Amino acid sequence: MQQNGSILADIGGTNARFAVLDEAGEIKQVKIYSVRENPTFIGALLNFRDTQCQDYKIVALALAVAGPVLGDIVPFTNSDWVCDRQEIIKAFGTETVFILNDFEAVAVALVDLKPDNLQIIQAGKKSDRHPMVIMGAGTGLGVGALKPILRAGGFEAITTEAGHTRYAPANERERNMIRFLSRSLNFVRAEDLISGPGLVNLYQANCHLVSEKPKPCVPADVVQWAREGDNLCHQVLDDFAAIFGSFASQMALSYNAIGGIYLTGGVLEKMDTEFDQKRFLERFATNPTMADLLNRIPVLRVKSDIPAFAGLRVVLKETMGL
C-alpha cells in the first residue's frame, strides 16, 4: 500500500539531487543525477519518480532551483535546463508545486540546523534580532539571507543574485588578475572567482602572473595539486580564501548580518581542510571602520550534506503540515 510522499529537489549547475519526504517527515530515497547527462529537468524528475517513488503517492513537490524565480517557467542560470511548473502539475496531477531559488531554500534551512551540523570559524556574538546570510560556492556562487520578523515572529527568506555582482579587487595583485581575466570574461563577477570554475580562473590568472603556461584542468585538479605540494596551486587556494573573505565581508555589512555568516557548497566540501579559514577571516575583517562589527559577527561552516532539503522540508511543514 502506498503512503503519501513529497518530492524534494535541489538542482544546481552540475548536479540535481532528488529525495522523497515521507509522512513521518523523514528524507529518503536520495538520488543524484548529473545535469550534463540528462537533457531536460522534467526528464530527470520523471525518471526519479518512476524508479524511486513506487511506494509513494506523490502529493506535493518542493523544488530548489539555481536561478531567479520570477514566474512559473524558470530557466537555470548555469545549465540549459528549464523548470516549468505547469508541465510538472500536468505530469504529477497535483497543484501543490513549490519552486524556490536554491539559496532561498538553503536560507530557510538555517532555522532547522543543529549545532552538530555546524563548524565554528569565528564565534562572534550572535544577535537573534539581525539577519543571517548564507553563501555557497559550487558551480556558481549562491547567496541568500534570512531576516527575523520581530513583531510577528518567524523569519523571511531573502533571495539574491549577489554572486553575479562585479568583484572589487582588494590590492594590486588582485587587480592584475582581474585585468587578465577580463580579457576573456569582460565582466568579472564574484562567481567567476568564488566557485569551482573560479578555482580554474584563479589558477590561470596565477600562471599568467608568473609567466607559466597553465595545464588543462578541472577544479578538483587544482585542489589535488595543492595537496601534492604545488606552490602555485597553494597560492590559488590562498587567493580563493582571501577573495571569499572579502566578498563575505561585503555581504555581512550589506545585510548587517550579526545573526551570522554561514558558508556551504560543494567546493568547500571537496577542499575540506585545504580551505584556509584563517586567511578567510583575515580578509573578512579588513575594514578599518567596521572591523569591530565584523569581528562580532559569527562565521560558521555548514556540514549538513544537502541543506536545501532541510529548507524545503520547512516550507512543506509550514504550508501543508507535512
Results as ranks from 00 to 15, higher is better:
2 Q>M: 07
5 G>W: 02
6 S>Q: 05
11 I>G: 10
12 G>W: 00
15 N>M: 13
16 A>C: 07
25 G>T: 01
25 G>S: 08
26 E>Q: 03
28 K>G: 04
39 P>S: 09
39 P>V: 09
40 T>Y: 01
41 F>K: 06
45 L>Y: 03
47 N>S: 05
49 R>V: 13
51 T>L: 04
52 Q>D: 04
52 Q>T: 08
54 Q>K: 14
58 I>R: 06
68 P>R: 15
68 P>M: 11
72 D>A: 07
74 V>T: 04
75 P>H: 05
81 W>A: 12
85 R>Y: 03
85 R>K: 15
86 Q>A: 14
92 F>R: 02
96 T>I: 10
96 T>Y: 04
99 I>D: 05
100 L>C: 14
104 E>I: 04
107 A>M: 05
108 V>S: 08
110 L>N: 14
116 D>K: 06
126 K>A: 05
134 I>M: 06
135 M>T: 01
136 G>S: 12
138 G>L: 12
141 L>D: 00
144 G>N: 02
145 A>C: 07
152 A>R: 00
157 A>W: 03
157 A>E: 12
159 T>C: 09
160 T>Y: 12
162 A>E: 00
163 G>K: 14
163 G>D: 01
167 Y>G: 15
168 A>L: 11
170 A>R: 09
170 A>Q: 05
174 E>H: 10
175 R>I: 12
179 R>M: 15
181 L>Y: 01
186 N>Y: 06
188 V>G: 14
190 A>W: 02
193 L>G: 11
198 G>F: 07
199 L>R: 05
200 V>Y: 09
208 H>W: 02
210 V>M: 09
211 S>Q: 04
214 P>H: 02
215 K>N: 11
224 Q>H: 03
225 W>Q: 15
229 G>F: 13
229 G>Y: 13
242 A>M: 08
243 I>A: 08
246 S>M: 07
247 F>P: 00
248 A>M: 07
249 S>F: 03
255 Y>M: 11
255 Y>L: 15
257 A>V: 02
257 A>G: 00
258 I>V: 13
266 G>S: 06
267 V>A: 12
270 K>Y: 07
273 T>N: 14
276 D>W: 13
282 E>F: 14
283 R>C: 09
284 F>C: 12
286 T>H: 09
288 P>E: 10
290 M>C: 05
298 P>S: 01
301 R>V: 09
301 R>G: 07
302 V>D: 00
302 V>R: 00
302 V>H: 03
303 K>A: 05
306 I>Q: 14
307 P>E: 08
310 A>H: 11
